[in-house]
């Protein structure tokens, strides 16, 4: 049983109780994904599994045999930041930094979801093709809590990248 994380293959843990989050943080020592609540209530642990964002604290590692996972470490590094990471730095889209990897993983998938035309609670009619508005971004990012209150800056950072991609 193996799982691919940021392009590297790893053996899954033997103890089925180990969550995907604890597997990555405690076993693989990749601590970019954070544990803020351990119950799917904060989004700090967000990872992309087969391209979709999920709360890695609410899934067991053993349930991911053969899956491909991207964590913040797979999105960019200090020396080679992804556009969203650069935009977060520029717009001060963080304060303590603890929710930040989750925000960025989430935003990475979120922009793809808008591009794919997925509606959200902020979309006036589910049959509409969603537009890239602040309210759409705010609704879609609401699964990522930030207690420092960097939300306004986070949305600024995301909007800049999204509008850059759309242009």
């Amino acid at each position: 049983m193996t799982i691919e994380i940021n392009g590297e293959s790893h053996e899954l843990p033997r103890d089925p109780r180990v969550t995907l989050l604890d597997f990555v943080r405690e076993h693989l020592k990749m601590t970019g994904a954070k544990k803020g609540c351990d119950h799917g209530q904060c989004g700090a642990c967000t990872m992309l599994v087969n391209g979709q964002r999920i709360n890695s604290c609410l899934t067991l590692a053993v349930m991911h045999d053969g899956d491909s996972v991207t964590t913040i470490e797979g999105i960019g590094s200090p020396a080679a930041m992804a556009p969203l990471q650069e935009a977060f730095v520029k717009h001060d889209g963080y304060q303590c930094g603890y929710c930040t990897p989750g925000q960025i993983c989430s935003a990475t998938a979120m922009l793809q979801e808008i591009a794919a035309g997925w509606p959200s609670d902020a979309t006036a009619d589910p049959t509409d093709t969603p537009k890239l508005t602040r309210e759409e971004v705010q609704e879609r990012m609401s699964g990522n809590l930030c207690r420092c209150g960097a939300y306004a800056n986070i949305v600024d950072a995301i909007m800049e990248v999204a509008e850059g991609e759309a242009a």
Binding site: I72, E73, P78, Q85
Partner: peptide
Amino acid sequence: LDRPDGPIKVSGVAPYAAEYD
């Protein structure tokens, strides 16, 4: 100015208390 600790925070490599190996 941008925070000097920004790049390590957005890359998930800034170490918090429980993350020292």
